[in-house]
């Protein structure tokens, strides 16, 4: 029913709606970072919502789009925590990796694959963050490893469990949008 309504809308309006959804979902994800609800927490860590968003965005887009999303969300993440070390590097890498993963035939965009990608990406980003920390503050890598090993794993688990919450609505919206766009351009 909803889809039919969308189909009748002019393409321009749909695109504006899409921008609103993109910006709105990023805003929502950034606010969720502060929230600690029961079930959303595992040994003091909550899901890395911005990383989930970057993965969901990049999964069906090209490398450039992934990188730009990574840059933007990295900047937002920096604003929400501390600018040093920056999250931009790790999130850009997540965008690029996820976008290039698509070309291989592993990812069939179901819940489990998305959860798996998020799991791996959290470990990748946190490893990069750990390296950045050790370079910046000249901490020994051993020290950092001890402190963060279990928290990185907890973060990866909780993020991948919550990934479908972001993936499902956004993915189905973009899927529909693509269909409608194809239909409309063919009609032209």
């Amino acid at each position: 029913m909803l889809e039919i309504n969308f189909r009748q809308m002019p393409l321009r309006w749909l695109r504006i709606l899409n921008i609103a959804i993109v910006f709105g979902s990023v805003g929502l994800c950034s606010m969720l970072l502060f929230l600690r609800l029961p079930g959303m927490e595992l040994i003091g860590t909550n899901p890395n919502w911005l990383l989930i968003w970057v993965v969901v965005w990049s999964i069906k887009r090209n490398v450039w789009q992934g990188a730009i999303a990574g840059t933007s969300l990295g900047l937002i993440y920096d604003a929400l925590t501390n600018p040093q070390p920056s999250h931009v590097l790790s999130l850009v890498l997540v965008g690029i990796l996820t976008a290039s993963l698509r070309k291989q035939r592993y990812a069939q965009e179901d819940f489990i694959t998305v959860a798996l990608i998020v799991f791996v990406m959290v470990i990748v980003t946190e490893t990069i963050m750990a390296l950045q920390f050790s370079i910046l503050f000249a901490n020994s890598l051993e020290n950092i490893r001890q402190h963060y090993q279990h928290r990185i794993l907890a973060s990866a688990i909780i993020s991948s469990i919550w990934a479908p919450v972001v993936h499902y609505p956004l993915n189905s919206w973009w899927e529909n949008l693509r269909k409608i766009e194809k239909l409309k351009t063919r009609l032209k």
Binding site: F34, T81, E126, Y148, R151
Partner: peptide, 8 residues
Amino acid sequence: GRSAGIWW
């Protein structure tokens, strides 16, 4: 609100 992410 609590801290965002595991590093802070």
